[in-house]
Design a protein around this nucleic acid. Structure first.
Lengths: 148, 148
DNA sequence: GGGATTCATTGGGAGGTCCAATGGTTTCGA
DNA sequence: TCGAAACCATTGGACCTCCCAATGAATCCC
């Protein structure tokens, strides 16, 4: 007779939930991208800050806070770092002396471009086990779940 | 004439990467499940510990560490918490006095069952915008990416 | 003109993840 | 058989991320 073998199932069940799987994929993707752009001296949120500044020209730090949803304190620290690296500059805004006008330098633009490529390559590595159609499907489904 | 409007594209590009989208979905799923099982006084890793103990009977803490990939220190703290709540017990293993035999209590089994249901419901809320087929597709794709 | 709001900055706290060291115990080979 | 090596649970602490509160300067709006 076979034993009942009731079920080692509770943990398997948790680990097959969408929330758990998404967490695993996100952690792996995070690590891959972080490792890739570390070659340019950036961490993930720094990359996002650089991209936002590149897109929306000279902008105040409060605009960055709103656009990215980051904490104001952390934005200050990241800008300190990025400014020390020469990737952007903070200048007083003559129209509103409370604000700093944050602008990308040409060096910042170059680093951003290289980081974009590195991040793409890291995502390719993340999805190696999926074909092109499957990748598009995954991105589409994730986007719909994420946008709620 | 239309302006050139070169591109506010760098940030959009980052935020449409699979790694970014998975991060958003994972964060939302994490919050939903965490909020759900908080009703039972558990956090996410505590839930996993409870499930592992339920599955693999009386087990040593080192086995939990290996099975879950958690840090030994954190397992100690979680077990302290779970034992204080009466959800499991630590007893000396007579076969190896270095080990603690960790066993679920009936109260722990009951809490685990309720948490499993709560976690399922939270995942349903996470995926409200997807149909049944799409949910299966998403889980399948995530599982393949996660298992590498 | 003056109160409320916004801005950048600073300080600090909560939670999660990880590594190192300790004392007690077992294992296994010389 | 006995001693070195490995394993066990526990403790302490470092680091990072995310979040909130308070400050002083500047602006807005009534």
């Amino acid at each position: 007779m076979s034993r009942p073998e009731p079920p080692p199932r509770a943990l398997d069940h948790i680990q097959s939930l969408p929330s758990w799987l998404a967490g695993r994929v996100a952690a792996r993707g995070r690590d891959l991208v972080a490792e890739a752009i570390a070659a340019e001296g950036l961490k993930l949120p720094h990359h996002a800050v650089l991209a936002a500044v590149a897109d929306e020209g000279p902008m105040a730090q409060a605009d960055l806070v709103r656009r990215l949803g980051f904490d104001a304190k952390d934005v200050v620290l990241m800008l300190n770092h990025l400014e020390r690296q020469g990737l952007l500059v903070r200048e007083p805004d003559p129209r509103d002396r409370r604000k700093n006008a944050v602008t990308l330098t040409s060096m910042g633009a170059a680093v951003l471009e290289r980081c974009a490529r590195l991040a793409d390559e890291a995502n390719d590595r993340l999805l190696t086990s999926l074909g092109p159609d499957e990748r598009r499907t995954l991105v589409s489904l994730l986007a719909r779940v994420a946008e709620d």
